[in-house]
Amino acid sequence: MVTIDEEFDMVIKLVLIGDTGVGKSNLLSRYTRDEFNSESKTTIGVDFATRTIQIGKKKMKTQIWDTAGQERYRAMTNAYYRGAAGALIVFDICSLNSFDSIGRWLQEIREYGDPGVPIVLVGNKFDLKHLRQVPISTAELFAHENSLKYIETSALLNSNVESAFQFLITEIINSFSQVHKDIQECTPLTFEDRSDLSFRRKCCVIN
């Protein structure tokens, strides 16, 4: 979902998904606050953060939903995929288990997310490459077979985190531009009038 409001030219929702403990929350904190917290808390349900970026002359706000990774939570977390403009599926390069789950995560997002939502596959914990269990070639092959972009990151070393998000956002912009040939000329499709409420705000949604 790409939302346009008065303050920002665009607001997009991104979701971070993947097994528990692969470093989703730290990718998020590195991207939005440039922080790595070795003492981060377990995510229960979903956590959020935002970051504003500039695309040409447009100001875009990314709203990132960091979901809990435990399989047991899937019944709840798949409700969070709705309206996401893009997804990062994360695994830990030192955990074959977490890589084996990617197929299931992909299925989930394709089933519960909006159709054709851009996805980037992220192999995190690149700093622990001496403990690597997932060879780059295996991950690349999987990504290729499923038409995904693949990137390896280290939230700890702040390596490639920026690029991973940029990859995804570029894909979103590209797919969005195909629908609306020129972003700058795009006009709101719907207008929600919330006159019943005192805190009125213009808002339009483009799906």
Partner: peptide
């Protein structure tokens, strides 16, 4: 740095 690439980052004003 903005103009150099398609997606260039800005510090989140909120953060």
């Amino acid at each position: 740095n903005e103009s150099s690439s398609l997606v260039t980052t800005d510090t989140s004003s909120h953060s």
